[in-house]
Design a protein around this nucleic acid. Structure first.
Lengths: 257, 257
DNA sequence: CGCACTGTTGATCAACGTCAAAACATGTGG
DNA sequence: CCACATGTTTTGACGTTGATCAACAGTGCG
Protein backbone atom coordinates (compact mmCIF):
# COMPACT_ATOMS: atom_id res chain seq x y z
CA UNK A 1 0.00 0.00 0.00
CA UNK A 2 1.47 3.23 -1.19
CA UNK A 3 1.65 6.16 1.23
CA UNK A 4 -0.37 9.18 0.25
CA UNK A 5 1.25 11.88 -1.77
CA UNK A 6 2.18 14.61 0.68
CA UNK A 7 0.87 18.07 0.10
CA UNK A 8 3.75 19.94 -1.41
CA UNK A 9 3.19 23.68 -1.53
CA UNK A 10 3.60 24.94 -5.05
CA UNK A 11 2.81 21.58 -6.56
CA UNK A 12 1.22 21.99 -9.95
CA UNK A 13 -2.37 21.08 -9.25
CA UNK A 14 -4.87 18.73 -7.68
CA UNK A 15 -2.68 18.28 -4.63
CA UNK A 16 -4.92 20.26 -2.38
CA UNK A 17 -6.37 17.95 0.19
CA UNK A 18 -9.29 15.98 -1.16
CA UNK A 19 -12.37 15.10 0.90
CA UNK A 20 -11.23 11.55 1.54
CA UNK A 21 -7.71 12.33 2.71
CA UNK A 22 -8.57 11.33 6.27
CA UNK A 23 -9.09 7.74 5.17
CA UNK A 24 -6.26 7.50 2.69
CA UNK A 25 -4.75 4.65 4.69
CA UNK A 26 -7.72 2.53 3.68
CA UNK A 27 -7.11 3.05 -0.02
CA UNK A 28 -5.17 1.21 -2.65
CA UNK A 29 -4.02 2.72 -5.92
CA UNK A 30 -4.42 1.20 -9.34
CA UNK A 31 -3.50 2.25 -12.87
CA UNK A 32 -5.62 1.69 -15.95
CA UNK A 33 -5.16 2.02 -19.67
CA UNK A 34 -7.48 3.57 -22.22
CA UNK A 35 -10.73 1.68 -22.39
CA UNK A 36 -10.06 -0.52 -19.39
CA UNK A 37 -12.91 -1.21 -17.04
CA UNK A 38 -12.17 0.44 -13.72
CA UNK A 39 -14.85 -1.00 -11.48
CA UNK A 40 -14.87 -4.64 -12.50
CA UNK A 41 -11.90 -5.76 -10.47
CA UNK A 42 -13.30 -8.39 -8.13
CA UNK A 43 -14.20 -6.06 -5.33
CA UNK A 44 -16.26 -7.73 -2.69
CA UNK A 45 -18.40 -4.78 -1.66
CA UNK A 46 -19.17 -1.26 -2.77
CA UNK A 47 -16.23 1.10 -2.98
CA UNK A 48 -15.41 4.73 -3.44
CA UNK A 49 -13.07 5.77 -6.19
CA UNK A 50 -10.96 8.90 -6.53
CA UNK A 51 -9.26 9.84 -9.77
CA UNK A 52 -5.64 10.75 -9.13
CA UNK A 53 -4.67 11.39 -12.74
CA UNK A 54 -6.33 10.83 -16.07
CA UNK A 55 -10.04 10.72 -16.77
CA UNK A 56 -12.75 8.15 -16.24
CA UNK A 57 -16.10 8.04 -17.95
CA UNK A 58 -19.19 6.45 -16.44
CA UNK A 59 -21.61 5.47 -19.14
CA UNK A 60 -24.51 3.45 -20.38
CA UNK A 61 -24.81 1.99 -23.85
CA UNK A 62 -28.15 2.64 -25.49
CA UNK A 63 -29.97 0.13 -27.60
CA UNK A 64 -28.71 1.94 -30.68
CA UNK A 65 -25.15 1.15 -29.65
CA UNK A 66 -24.49 4.80 -28.96
CA UNK A 67 -22.57 5.39 -25.77
CA UNK A 68 -23.93 7.95 -23.37
CA UNK A 69 -21.52 9.40 -20.84
CA UNK A 70 -23.47 10.08 -17.67
CA UNK A 71 -20.55 11.27 -15.59
CA UNK A 72 -17.11 12.50 -16.52
CA UNK A 73 -14.71 12.03 -13.64
CA UNK A 74 -11.64 14.25 -13.59
CA UNK A 75 -8.61 14.28 -11.28
CA UNK A 76 -9.68 14.96 -7.72
CA UNK A 77 -13.24 13.78 -8.33
CA UNK A 78 -14.73 10.95 -6.33
CA UNK A 79 -17.60 8.62 -7.01
CA UNK A 80 -19.17 5.56 -5.48
CA UNK A 81 -19.74 2.27 -7.20
CA UNK A 82 -21.55 -0.84 -5.97
CA UNK A 83 -19.83 -4.17 -6.31
CA UNK A 84 -21.96 -6.33 -8.52
CA UNK A 85 -25.17 -4.41 -8.55
CA UNK A 86 -27.50 -4.80 -11.46
CA UNK A 87 -27.93 -1.62 -13.46
CA UNK A 88 -24.75 0.05 -12.33
CA UNK A 89 -22.98 2.33 -14.77
CA UNK A 90 -19.99 1.08 -16.68
CA UNK A 91 -16.82 2.87 -15.73
CA UNK A 92 -13.80 2.96 -18.00
CA UNK A 93 -10.61 4.92 -18.38
CA UNK A 94 -10.87 7.68 -20.99
CA UNK A 95 -7.14 8.38 -21.06
CA UNK A 96 -4.29 5.99 -21.52
CA UNK A 97 -2.91 6.29 -18.03
CA UNK A 98 -5.60 6.74 -15.44
CA UNK A 99 -4.62 6.13 -11.86
CA UNK A 100 -7.33 5.68 -9.29
CA UNK A 101 -7.42 5.45 -5.51
CA UNK A 102 -9.89 2.82 -4.36
CA UNK A 103 -11.55 2.99 -0.95
CA UNK A 104 -13.45 -0.20 -0.09
CA UNK A 105 -16.48 0.71 1.98
CA UNK A 106 -16.05 -2.45 3.99
CA UNK A 107 -13.03 -0.89 5.67
CA UNK A 108 -15.03 2.19 6.47
CA UNK A 109 -16.35 1.01 9.83
CA UNK A 110 -12.93 1.41 11.36
CA UNK A 111 -13.07 5.17 11.29
CA UNK A 112 -16.28 5.52 13.27
CA UNK A 113 -19.88 6.11 12.43
CA UNK A 114 -19.85 9.89 12.39
CA UNK A 115 -16.91 10.17 10.06
CA UNK A 116 -18.21 7.41 7.84
CA UNK A 117 -21.60 9.04 7.52
CA UNK A 118 -20.25 12.50 6.82
CA UNK A 119 -17.90 11.11 4.22
CA UNK A 120 -20.84 9.37 2.61
CA UNK A 121 -22.60 12.70 2.48
CA UNK A 122 -19.48 14.25 1.01
CA UNK A 123 -19.25 11.65 -1.74
CA UNK A 124 -22.92 11.90 -2.64
CA UNK A 125 -22.76 15.67 -2.59
CA UNK A 126 -19.79 15.76 -4.94
CA UNK A 127 -21.57 13.49 -7.38
CA UNK A 128 -24.70 15.60 -7.20
CA UNK A 129 -22.70 18.71 -8.02
CA UNK A 130 -21.21 17.07 -11.10
CA UNK A 131 -24.60 15.83 -12.21
CA UNK A 132 -26.15 19.23 -11.78
CA UNK A 133 -23.45 20.84 -13.87
CA UNK A 134 -23.99 18.18 -16.52
CA UNK A 135 -27.73 18.80 -16.59
CA UNK A 136 -27.06 22.48 -16.93
CA UNK A 137 -24.96 21.73 -19.99
CA UNK A 138 -27.22 19.10 -21.55
CA UNK A 139 -30.21 21.39 -21.11
CA UNK A 140 -28.87 24.03 -23.47
CA UNK A 141 -30.80 24.30 -26.68
CA UNK A 142 -28.01 24.43 -29.25
CA UNK A 143 -24.73 22.67 -29.91
CA UNK A 144 -22.94 25.98 -29.51
CA UNK A 145 -24.51 26.44 -26.12
CA UNK A 146 -23.64 22.97 -24.94
CA UNK A 147 -20.05 23.16 -26.08
CA UNK A 148 -19.56 26.66 -24.74
CA UNK A 149 -21.04 25.74 -21.39
CA UNK A 150 -18.85 22.64 -21.25
CA UNK A 151 -15.66 24.56 -21.84
CA UNK A 152 -16.78 27.28 -19.49
CA UNK A 153 -17.42 24.70 -16.78
CA UNK A 154 -13.96 23.27 -17.34
CA UNK A 155 -12.49 26.72 -16.99
CA UNK A 156 -14.48 27.42 -13.86
CA UNK A 157 -13.31 24.16 -12.36
CA UNK A 158 -9.74 24.92 -13.24
CA UNK A 159 -10.09 28.38 -11.75
CA UNK A 160 -11.53 26.99 -8.54
CA UNK A 161 -8.58 24.65 -8.19
CA UNK A 162 -5.83 27.11 -8.97
CA UNK A 163 -7.48 30.06 -7.28
CA UNK A 164 -7.13 32.34 -10.28
CA UNK A 165 -9.16 32.79 -13.48
CA UNK A 166 -8.22 30.17 -16.03
CA UNK A 167 -7.20 31.20 -19.51
CA UNK A 168 -5.58 28.03 -20.76
CA UNK A 169 -7.74 24.94 -20.58
CA UNK A 170 -7.02 21.38 -21.65
CA UNK A 171 -9.88 19.45 -23.14
CA UNK A 172 -9.67 16.29 -21.06
CA UNK A 173 -11.11 13.85 -23.59
CA UNK A 174 -11.36 13.17 -27.30
CA UNK A 175 -14.01 14.68 -29.56
CA UNK A 176 -15.76 11.34 -29.52
CA UNK A 177 -16.09 11.40 -25.77
CA UNK A 178 -17.09 15.05 -25.82
CA UNK A 179 -19.83 14.06 -28.24
CA UNK A 180 -21.03 11.27 -25.96
CA UNK A 181 -20.97 13.62 -22.99
CA UNK A 182 -22.80 16.45 -24.75
CA UNK A 183 -25.16 14.17 -26.63
CA UNK A 184 -24.00 15.45 -30.01
CA UNK A 185 -22.30 13.87 -32.99
CA UNK A 186 -18.53 14.03 -33.30
CA UNK A 187 -18.78 16.11 -36.42
CA UNK A 188 -21.00 18.66 -34.74
CA UNK A 189 -18.57 18.92 -31.83
CA UNK A 190 -15.71 19.56 -34.19
CA UNK A 191 -17.65 22.08 -36.24
CA UNK A 192 -18.86 23.85 -33.12
CA UNK A 193 -15.33 24.17 -31.80
CA UNK A 194 -14.12 25.76 -35.01
CA UNK A 195 -17.18 28.02 -34.91
CA UNK A 196 -16.21 29.10 -31.40
CA UNK A 197 -12.71 29.71 -32.66
CA UNK A 198 -13.94 31.85 -35.54
CA UNK A 199 -16.13 33.85 -33.19
CA UNK A 200 -13.02 34.57 -31.14
CA UNK A 201 -14.37 33.03 -27.97
CA UNK A 202 -11.58 30.49 -27.79
CA UNK A 203 -8.23 29.98 -29.51
CA UNK A 204 -6.48 26.70 -30.20
CA UNK A 205 -2.92 26.00 -29.15
CA UNK A 206 -3.25 22.31 -30.00
CA UNK A 207 -6.43 20.40 -30.80
CA UNK A 208 -6.64 19.59 -27.10
CA UNK A 209 -5.39 22.84 -25.61
CA UNK A 210 -7.28 26.08 -25.87
CA UNK A 211 -7.18 29.60 -24.57
CA UNK A 212 -10.34 31.13 -23.24
CA UNK A 213 -10.74 34.46 -24.97
CA UNK A 214 -14.21 35.49 -23.87
CA UNK A 215 -15.46 33.39 -21.00
CA UNK A 216 -18.53 35.54 -20.47
CA UNK A 217 -19.74 34.95 -24.01
CA UNK A 218 -18.69 31.32 -23.85
CA UNK A 219 -21.04 30.58 -20.97
CA UNK A 220 -24.06 32.11 -22.67
CA UNK A 221 -23.53 31.63 -26.40
CA UNK A 222 -26.06 29.81 -28.48
CA UNK A 223 -28.98 31.02 -26.42
CA UNK A 224 -30.56 33.77 -28.51
CA UNK A 225 -28.75 36.45 -26.57
CA UNK A 226 -30.32 39.44 -28.27
CA UNK A 227 -33.81 40.80 -28.58
CA UNK A 228 -35.79 39.51 -25.61
CA UNK A 229 -37.70 42.71 -26.35
CA UNK A 230 -40.76 41.40 -24.64
CA UNK A 231 -40.94 37.70 -24.16
CA UNK A 232 -44.13 36.32 -22.78
CA UNK A 233 -43.84 33.84 -20.00
CA UNK A 234 -46.90 31.63 -20.37
CA UNK A 235 -47.86 31.70 -16.74
CA UNK A 236 -46.08 31.55 -13.46
CA UNK A 237 -44.30 34.71 -14.45
CA UNK A 238 -45.16 36.43 -11.28
CA UNK A 239 -42.42 38.80 -12.19
CA UNK A 240 -43.06 42.16 -10.61
CA UNK A 241 -43.68 43.93 -13.89
CA UNK A 242 -40.27 45.45 -14.41
CA UNK A 243 -38.28 42.31 -13.68
CA UNK A 244 -35.06 42.36 -15.64
CA UNK A 245 -34.90 39.53 -18.19
CA UNK A 246 -32.49 37.58 -16.07
CA UNK A 247 -29.36 39.08 -17.51
CA UNK A 248 -27.27 37.53 -14.79
CA UNK A 249 -29.03 34.24 -14.51
CA UNK A 250 -26.24 31.85 -15.35
CA UNK A 251 -23.66 30.50 -12.89
CA UNK A 252 -24.58 27.16 -11.52
CA UNK A 253 -25.78 26.24 -8.11
CA UNK A 254 -23.18 24.85 -5.79
CA UNK A 255 -24.29 23.87 -2.35
CA UNK A 256 -27.93 23.07 -2.94
CA UNK A 257 -29.09 19.61 -3.76
CA UNK B 1 -47.19 22.85 13.71
CA UNK B 2 -49.21 20.08 12.18
CA UNK B 3 -48.57 16.52 13.35
CA UNK B 4 -47.22 14.18 10.74
CA UNK B 5 -49.62 12.17 8.67
CA UNK B 6 -49.69 8.72 10.21
CA UNK B 7 -48.96 5.75 8.03
CA UNK B 8 -52.33 4.35 7.15
CA UNK B 9 -52.16 0.93 5.56
CA UNK B 10 -53.94 0.91 2.27
CA UNK B 11 -53.57 4.63 1.81
CA UNK B 12 -53.36 5.50 -1.84
CA UNK B 13 -49.70 6.34 -2.21
CA UNK B 14 -46.64 8.14 -0.94
CA UNK B 15 -47.43 7.30 2.64
CA UNK B 16 -44.64 4.82 3.02
CA UNK B 17 -42.14 6.16 5.49
CA UNK B 18 -39.86 8.71 3.93
CA UNK B 19 -36.15 9.02 4.78
CA UNK B 20 -36.68 12.00 7.04
CA UNK B 21 -39.49 10.60 9.14
CA UNK B 22 -37.26 10.32 12.18
CA UNK B 23 -36.94 14.10 12.33
CA UNK B 24 -40.48 14.98 11.41
CA UNK B 25 -40.88 16.81 14.72
CA UNK B 26 -38.39 19.37 13.47
CA UNK B 27 -40.42 20.16 10.39
CA UNK B 28 -43.09 22.68 9.57
CA UNK B 29 -45.54 22.35 6.71
CA UNK B 30 -46.39 25.02 4.18
CA UNK B 31 -48.68 25.22 1.20
CA UNK B 32 -47.91 27.01 -2.05
CA UNK B 33 -49.82 27.98 -5.14
CA UNK B 34 -48.82 27.63 -8.76
CA UNK B 35 -45.78 29.73 -9.50
CA UNK B 36 -45.03 30.64 -5.91
CA UNK B 37 -41.44 30.66 -4.80
CA UNK B 38 -40.94 27.88 -2.28
CA UNK B 39 -37.51 28.63 -0.92
CA UNK B 40 -37.60 32.38 -0.48
CA UNK B 41 -39.43 32.47 2.81
CA UNK B 42 -37.04 34.20 5.16
CA UNK B 43 -35.29 31.11 6.35
CA UNK B 44 -32.23 31.87 8.37
CA UNK B 45 -30.11 28.91 7.36
CA UNK B 46 -30.12 26.09 4.86
CA UNK B 47 -33.08 23.74 4.99
CA UNK B 48 -34.30 20.46 3.64
CA UNK B 49 -37.59 20.30 1.84
CA UNK B 50 -39.88 17.35 1.26
CA UNK B 51 -42.78 17.49 -1.15
CA UNK B 52 -45.92 16.14 0.48
CA UNK B 53 -48.25 16.74 -2.42
CA UNK B 54 -48.00 18.60 -5.68
CA UNK B 55 -44.86 19.23 -7.71
CA UNK B 56 -41.97 21.65 -7.39
CA UNK B 57 -39.56 22.63 -10.12
CA UNK B 58 -36.02 23.80 -9.47
CA UNK B 59 -34.79 25.87 -12.35
CA UNK B 60 -32.47 28.42 -13.82
CA UNK B 61 -33.43 31.02 -16.36
CA UNK B 62 -31.07 31.27 -19.30
CA UNK B 63 -30.03 34.50 -20.90
CA UNK B 64 -32.55 33.83 -23.65
CA UNK B 65 -35.35 33.92 -21.11
CA UNK B 66 -35.97 30.23 -21.57
CA UNK B 67 -36.52 28.40 -18.32
CA UNK B 68 -34.51 25.27 -17.75
CA UNK B 69 -35.85 22.81 -15.19
CA UNK B 70 -32.87 21.19 -13.51
CA UNK B 71 -34.82 19.12 -11.03
CA UNK B 72 -38.42 18.04 -10.91
CA UNK B 73 -39.46 17.26 -7.35
CA UNK B 74 -42.43 14.94 -6.90
CA UNK B 75 -44.30 13.86 -3.77
CA UNK B 76 -41.96 12.03 -1.43
CA UNK B 77 -38.85 13.61 -2.91
CA UNK B 78 -36.52 15.65 -0.79
CA UNK B 79 -33.97 18.29 -1.66
CA UNK B 80 -31.70 20.71 0.13
CA UNK B 81 -31.60 24.42 -0.38
CA UNK B 82 -29.20 27.01 1.05
CA UNK B 83 -30.63 30.10 2.63
CA UNK B 84 -29.38 33.07 0.70
CA UNK B 85 -26.59 31.54 -1.27
CA UNK B 86 -25.56 33.11 -4.51
CA UNK B 87 -26.22 30.91 -7.52
CA UNK B 88 -28.82 28.70 -5.92
CA UNK B 89 -31.59 27.34 -8.08
CA UNK B 90 -34.98 28.95 -8.08
CA UNK B 91 -37.66 26.70 -6.66
CA UNK B 92 -41.32 27.19 -7.43
CA UNK B 93 -44.54 25.25 -7.22
CA UNK B 94 -45.52 23.63 -10.51
CA UNK B 95 -49.02 22.71 -9.35
CA UNK B 96 -51.62 24.87 -7.77
CA UNK B 97 -51.55 23.24 -4.38
CA UNK B 98 -48.12 22.11 -3.39
CA UNK B 99 -47.56 21.34 0.23
CA UNK B 100 -44.06 21.04 1.52
CA UNK B 101 -42.46 19.91 4.75
CA UNK B 102 -39.56 22.15 5.70
CA UNK B 103 -36.73 20.91 7.89
CA UNK B 104 -34.39 23.71 8.98
CA UNK B 105 -30.87 22.35 9.23
CA UNK B 106 -30.24 24.54 12.25
CA UNK B 107 -32.47 22.26 14.29
CA UNK B 108 -30.57 19.25 13.07
CA UNK B 109 -27.95 19.23 15.81
CA UNK B 110 -30.50 18.07 18.32
CA UNK B 111 -30.71 14.61 16.86
CA UNK B 112 -27.03 13.82 17.18
CA UNK B 113 -24.08 13.84 14.82
CA UNK B 114 -24.42 10.35 13.46
CA UNK B 115 -28.04 10.68 12.52
CA UNK B 116 -27.53 14.16 11.11
CA UNK B 117 -24.66 12.99 8.95
CA UNK B 118 -26.42 9.93 7.64
CA UNK B 119 -29.51 11.97 6.85
CA UNK B 120 -27.29 14.38 4.95
CA UNK B 121 -26.00 11.46 2.97
CA UNK B 122 -29.54 10.32 2.38
CA UNK B 123 -30.63 13.70 1.07
CA UNK B 124 -27.63 14.07 -1.20
CA UNK B 125 -28.04 10.53 -2.46
CA UNK B 126 -31.68 11.06 -3.32
CA UNK B 127 -30.83 14.18 -5.27
CA UNK B 128 -28.05 12.39 -7.10
CA UNK B 129 -30.45 9.64 -8.13
CA UNK B 130 -32.90 12.15 -9.56
CA UNK B 131 -30.13 13.96 -11.39
CA UNK B 132 -28.81 10.76 -12.87
CA UNK B 133 -32.23 9.80 -14.15
CA UNK B 134 -32.57 13.27 -15.64
CA UNK B 135 -29.23 13.01 -17.41
CA UNK B 136 -30.25 9.65 -18.75
CA UNK B 137 -33.32 11.30 -20.25
CA UNK B 138 -31.66 14.48 -21.52
CA UNK B 139 -28.93 12.44 -23.14
CA UNK B 140 -31.29 10.72 -25.54
CA UNK B 141 -30.81 11.77 -29.12
CA UNK B 142 -34.37 12.37 -30.28
CA UNK B 143 -37.50 13.99 -28.91
CA UNK B 144 -39.23 10.64 -29.04
CA UNK B 145 -36.48 9.09 -26.97
CA UNK B 146 -36.55 11.85 -24.38
CA UNK B 147 -40.29 11.80 -23.99
CA UNK B 148 -40.47 8.01 -23.91
CA UNK B 149 -37.73 7.78 -21.34
CA UNK B 150 -39.45 10.44 -19.25
CA UNK B 151 -42.75 8.61 -19.17
CA UNK B 152 -41.00 5.33 -18.60
CA UNK B 153 -39.16 6.81 -15.63
CA UNK B 154 -42.44 8.08 -14.22
CA UNK B 155 -43.91 4.61 -14.60
CA UNK B 156 -40.91 3.00 -12.97
CA UNK B 157 -41.13 5.40 -10.08
CA UNK B 158 -44.81 4.74 -9.69
CA UNK B 159 -44.15 1.01 -9.82
CA UNK B 160 -41.47 1.27 -7.16
CA UNK B 161 -43.86 3.09 -4.87
CA UNK B 162 -46.85 0.85 -5.33
CA UNK B 163 -44.89 -2.36 -5.62
CA UNK B 164 -46.57 -3.43 -8.83
CA UNK B 165 -46.01 -2.55 -12.50
CA UNK B 166 -47.69 0.72 -13.35
CA UNK B 167 -50.07 0.95 -16.26
CA UNK B 168 -51.81 4.22 -15.53
CA UNK B 169 -49.52 7.19 -15.12
CA UNK B 170 -50.34 10.82 -14.47
CA UNK B 171 -48.16 13.38 -16.16
CA UNK B 172 -47.30 15.54 -13.18
CA UNK B 173 -46.80 18.84 -15.01
CA UNK B 174 -47.99 20.83 -17.99
CA UNK B 175 -46.57 20.45 -21.50
CA UNK B 176 -44.69 23.68 -20.93
CA UNK B 177 -42.91 22.29 -17.92
CA UNK B 178 -42.29 18.99 -19.67
CA UNK B 179 -40.67 21.00 -22.46
CA UNK B 180 -38.46 22.85 -20.00
CA UNK B 181 -37.52 19.61 -18.31
CA UNK B 182 -36.75 17.76 -21.53
CA UNK B 183 -35.16 20.74 -23.25
CA UNK B 184 -37.66 20.68 -26.08
CA UNK B 185 -40.28 23.10 -27.35
CA UNK B 186 -43.86 22.76 -26.20
CA UNK B 187 -45.01 21.98 -29.71
CA UNK B 188 -42.52 19.17 -30.06
CA UNK B 189 -43.61 17.69 -26.74
CA UNK B 190 -47.21 17.73 -27.86
CA UNK B 191 -46.41 16.27 -31.26
CA UNK B 192 -44.22 13.60 -29.74
CA UNK B 193 -46.95 12.53 -27.33
CA UNK B 194 -49.46 12.12 -30.15
CA UNK B 195 -46.79 10.22 -32.07
CA UNK B 196 -46.36 7.87 -29.11
CA UNK B 197 -50.11 7.48 -29.01
CA UNK B 198 -50.29 6.62 -32.71
CA UNK B 199 -47.50 4.10 -32.30
CA UNK B 200 -49.61 2.44 -29.60
CA UNK B 201 -46.98 2.85 -26.91
CA UNK B 202 -49.29 4.91 -24.74
CA UNK B 203 -52.99 5.75 -24.68
CA UNK B 204 -54.61 8.91 -23.39
CA UNK B 205 -57.40 8.92 -20.85
CA UNK B 206 -57.16 12.66 -20.37
CA UNK B 207 -54.40 14.98 -21.62
CA UNK B 208 -52.69 14.41 -18.28
CA UNK B 209 -53.49 10.76 -17.68
CA UNK B 210 -52.14 7.98 -19.83
CA UNK B 211 -51.97 4.24 -19.96
CA UNK B 212 -48.66 2.60 -20.63
CA UNK B 213 -49.24 0.15 -23.45
CA UNK B 214 -45.70 -0.94 -24.25
CA UNK B 215 -43.27 0.08 -21.56
CA UNK B 216 -40.42 -1.88 -23.08
CA UNK B 217 -40.66 0.03 -26.35
CA UNK B 218 -41.27 3.28 -24.50
CA UNK B 219 -37.94 3.13 -22.73
CA UNK B 220 -35.96 2.54 -25.89
CA UNK B 221 -37.87 4.29 -28.67
CA UNK B 222 -36.23 6.94 -30.76
CA UNK B 223 -32.85 5.30 -30.61
CA UNK B 224 -32.46 3.61 -34.00
CA UNK B 225 -33.49 0.32 -32.52
CA UNK B 226 -32.87 -1.80 -35.56
CA UNK B 227 -29.86 -2.71 -37.62
CA UNK B 228 -26.82 -2.37 -35.41
CA UNK B 229 -25.57 -4.98 -37.88
CA UNK B 230 -21.98 -4.13 -37.16
CA UNK B 231 -21.35 -0.82 -35.53
CA UNK B 232 -17.74 0.20 -35.19
CA UNK B 233 -16.68 1.51 -31.86
CA UNK B 234 -13.89 3.93 -32.68
CA UNK B 235 -11.57 2.64 -30.02
CA UNK B 236 -11.90 1.51 -26.47
CA UNK B 237 -14.15 -1.23 -27.66
CA UNK B 238 -12.19 -3.91 -25.97
CA UNK B 239 -15.29 -5.94 -26.29
CA UNK B 240 -14.38 -9.61 -26.21
CA UNK B 241 -15.29 -10.21 -29.86
CA UNK B 242 -18.73 -11.64 -29.39
CA UNK B 243 -20.00 -9.04 -26.95
CA UNK B 244 -23.72 -8.66 -27.42
CA UNK B 245 -24.71 -5.17 -28.58
CA UNK B 246 -26.10 -4.30 -25.22
CA UNK B 247 -29.63 -5.40 -25.87
CA UNK B 248 -30.44 -5.02 -22.22
CA UNK B 249 -28.48 -1.90 -21.54
CA UNK B 250 -31.22 0.39 -20.32
CA UNK B 251 -32.51 0.59 -16.77
CA UNK B 252 -30.80 3.21 -14.75
CA UNK B 253 -28.27 2.90 -12.03
CA UNK B 254 -29.60 3.15 -8.54
CA UNK B 255 -27.13 2.89 -5.75
CA UNK B 256 -24.00 4.17 -7.42
CA UNK B 257 -23.01 7.79 -7.37
C1' DC C 1 -69.78 36.78 -22.78
C1' DG C 2 -64.60 37.80 -22.84
C1' DC C 3 -60.28 36.42 -20.99
C1' DA C 4 -56.41 33.55 -19.73
C1' DC C 5 -54.32 29.30 -19.90
C1' DT C 6 -53.58 24.67 -21.83
C1' DG C 7 -53.09 21.70 -25.56
C1' DT C 8 -52.97 20.62 -30.47
C1' DT C 9 -51.92 21.12 -35.44
C1' DG C 10 -49.82 23.16 -39.71
C1' DA C 11 -46.07 25.43 -42.54
C1' DT C 12 -41.47 26.99 -42.89
C1' DC C 13 -36.59 27.10 -42.11
C1' DA C 14 -32.32 26.45 -39.60
C1' DA C 15 -29.70 23.17 -36.99
C1' DC C 16 -27.94 18.89 -36.47
C1' DG C 17 -27.13 13.86 -37.69
C1' DT C 18 -25.47 10.92 -41.25
C1' DC C 19 -22.54 9.48 -44.90
C1' DA C 20 -18.26 10.26 -47.05
C1' DA C 21 -13.66 11.68 -47.62
C1' DA C 22 -9.48 13.82 -46.50
C1' DA C 23 -5.67 15.88 -43.51
C1' DC C 24 -2.98 15.08 -39.65
C1' DA C 25 -0.52 12.58 -36.11
C1' DT C 26 1.63 8.41 -34.40
C1' DG C 27 3.52 3.96 -34.38
C1' DT C 28 5.36 -0.42 -36.64
C1' DG C 29 8.02 -3.04 -39.61
C1' DG C 30 10.76 -3.56 -43.77
C1' DC D 1 14.07 6.30 -45.03
C1' DC D 2 9.42 4.75 -46.81
C1' DA D 3 5.09 1.98 -46.74
C1' DC D 4 1.43 0.90 -44.09
C1' DA D 5 -1.93 0.80 -40.42
C1' DT D 6 -4.55 3.04 -36.82
C1' DG D 7 -6.69 6.70 -34.57
C1' DT D 8 -7.96 11.69 -34.18
C1' DT D 9 -9.74 15.79 -36.10
C1' DT D 10 -11.65 18.36 -39.70
C1' DT D 11 -14.49 19.46 -43.73
C1' DG D 12 -18.21 18.83 -47.29
C1' DA D 13 -22.87 17.37 -49.09
C1' DC D 14 -27.37 16.01 -48.03
C1' DG D 15 -31.59 14.57 -45.58
C1' DT D 16 -34.16 14.63 -41.33
C1' DT D 17 -35.50 16.54 -36.93
C1' DG D 18 -37.10 19.93 -34.25
C1' DA D 19 -37.62 25.17 -33.27
C1' DT D 20 -40.27 28.96 -34.69
C1' DC D 21 -44.29 31.44 -36.11
C1' DA D 22 -49.05 31.13 -36.47
C1' DA D 23 -53.63 29.71 -35.82
C1' DC D 24 -57.24 27.23 -33.45
C1' DA D 25 -59.89 24.13 -30.10
C1' DG D 26 -61.03 23.05 -25.31
C1' DT D 27 -61.55 24.51 -20.45
C1' DG D 28 -62.30 27.12 -16.36
C1' DC D 29 -63.37 31.60 -14.45
C1' DG D 30 -64.84 36.31 -13.47
Amino acid sequence: MRPTVPVIPGNTAIEKVHPLHVIDELATTKRFHLGEDICSGGYVGPSWFRIISGVAKRCVTLSSGRQQIVDLVLPGDIFAHPANERGALGVEAATDVTSVAIYPCSRLRRVGDVLAASLSAEVACASARRYQAHIHILGRATALGKTGAFISALAERSARESGQPAVQVTLPVSRYDMADYLSLSVETVSRTLTELKQRRLIAFLTPRTINIVDNEALATCGDAQFGPSEWQGHHSSLSPVGASPAKTARRMASASL
